[in-house]
Simulated scan of single mutants.
Amino acid sequence: MNDTEYFTGSGNVFADIGLPNADEHLIKAQLVYKIDHIMKSRRLKQVDAAAMLGVKQPDVSKMLRGDFRQFSVERLMRFLVALGQDVEIVVKPAVPQGAAHGHLSVS
């Protein structure tokens, strides 16, 4: 018999492991994922992306490896704009209506 315990995650691994500011970490990770996807689809080298983003290549490398603490959500959104993307912030009532808290997401 298998006695392995498991639990269903919340959808935010940063919250699941107890990090403070988990929502912000998740948003940053989602934005970096988008940046990485765009770079790969365009076959952009890190040095070329760095020039477009106004940062140094080692900073791009660290960001893509998950070390993005030095970048704010706003700066990551500006990176997406520099890569030719429209970034739209939408504010709407939480679903279900009357929920105690809304949520942040990147799509």
Rank of each mutant, 00 (worst) to 15 (best):
M1R: 11
M1K: 12
N2D: 15
N2P: 15
D3F: 08
D3Y: 09
T4F: 11
E5Q: 13
E5R: 15
F7G: 03
T8M: 14
T8N: 14
T8Y: 15
S10A: 10
G11S: 12
F14A: 12
A15P: 01
A15R: 14
A15D: 10
A15W: 10
D16G: 11
D16F: 07
D16W: 10
L19A: 13
L19V: 09
P20S: 14
P20H: 10
N21S: 07
A22N: 02
A22E: 01
A22T: 00
D23E: 15
D23G: 12
D23Y: 07
E24F: 06
E24Q: 09
H25C: 00
I27H: 05
I27Q: 10
A29R: 12
L31W: 02
L31C: 04
V32A: 01
V32M: 03
K34W: 01
K34A: 02
K34T: 01
K34N: 04
D36W: 00
D36V: 03
D36K: 05
I38S: 02
I38R: 08
M39N: 12
M39L: 14
M39S: 11
S41N: 12
S41F: 03
R42F: 10
R42I: 00
R43W: 03
R43K: 15
R43E: 13
K45Q: 13
Q46K: 14
V47F: 12
V47W: 11
V47D: 15
D48M: 08
A49I: 08
A49E: 09
A50R: 01
L53A: 07
G54C: 05
G54P: 06
G54N: 06
K56N: 13
K56T: 14
S61I: 02
M63R: 04
M63H: 06
L64F: 02
R69F: 00
R69H: 11
Q70N: 11
F71V: 03
F71W: 09
F71I: 03
E74G: 08
L76V: 01
F79R: 04
F79E: 04
V81M: 09
V81R: 13
L83R: 11
L83W: 09
G84A: 08
Q85A: 14
Q85K: 14
D86Y: 10
D86W: 06
E88V: 14
E88F: 05
V90F: 00
V90H: 10
K92S: 14
P93M: 02
A94Q: 05
V95R: 04
G98A: 03
A99V: 03
H103Q: 13
L104C: 07
S105Y: 07
S105C: 05
S107P: 01
S107L: 10
S107I: 06
